[in-house]
Amino acid sequence: MAERLRIYRELVRAQVRGQASYRLSFTLDLLGNLLFFGSDLLAVLVVFRQVPALGGFTLRETLVVFGLAATGFALSDLFVGNIERMKTYVRTGLLDAVLIRPLGVLGQLLALDVGVRRIGRVVYSVLLLVVALRAADVPLTPVRVLMLVLTPLCGAVFFGAFFIATSTVAFWWVESGELSSSLTYGGRDFTAYPMPVYGTWLRRLFGFTLGFGFVAYYPSLVVLGRADPLGGPAWLSWTGPAVAALAAAAAWLIWRTGVRHYRSTGS
């Protein structure tokens, strides 16, 4: 196990070294991250120019939800986000190259293209979260701090599971285009606003069935010290870790099925 971790560490280090050789490109990426993040944030700010509150949540409260979701997403994007390029891996044969090496397939793919260039998003998200917490005037208690640490971590696992699970679409359907992103990035957009904004059936589908409601919205209720306007019980806020674990397990199963399917159909 330790041996294996060391191998992966070497792989990641090599990848980082490779990316660092494009210094200009790396700087550009950091700027690009800022632009994308800024535009997401700006969209929320502009919407709140029209109304004082959305779904019963003020701008400051919404930004806490947004910050929690964004931090979780940015973390998962950093570590596993590259897996969305699965279609390219299948087409260019990188997947075959990985299959002839004595290591796990998923681990290699993740380590071979870890997204150091996306580190900017993590920084910006955390900064926003801190600012939003100050603005929302939330007194920090140990429970809230625990929640603030736990939520982005669970969110990262949860989004990571979606990245991996949806990337397997490429094993069946190489021309699937942006289809995977409708769940990953769609899920991120869903979590950016408090759940009462959405209609009942979308809440059921995205919030509960797919589980995106437990990524930021329910945990944020504890942080903000509010009851659920939708009438959900208080313990729902603490289900994040369980939901993340469930999603990770499901993603692993889907991934294994996908790899098995690839081996029986080829590219």
């Binding site: 191998i7 990848q15 490779g18 002839i100 290591l103």
Partner: peptide, 24 residues
């Protein structure tokens, strides 16, 4: 595979070999 590479595109050949030593 003649038309596909298993080397690290952005790294010197020497580093690819070193990585393979770890992997294998």
């Amino acid at each position: 595979f003649g038309q596909r590479s298993q080397l690290w595109w952005d790294l010197p050949l020497r580093d690819s070999f070193e990585l393979l030593r770890h992997i294998y």
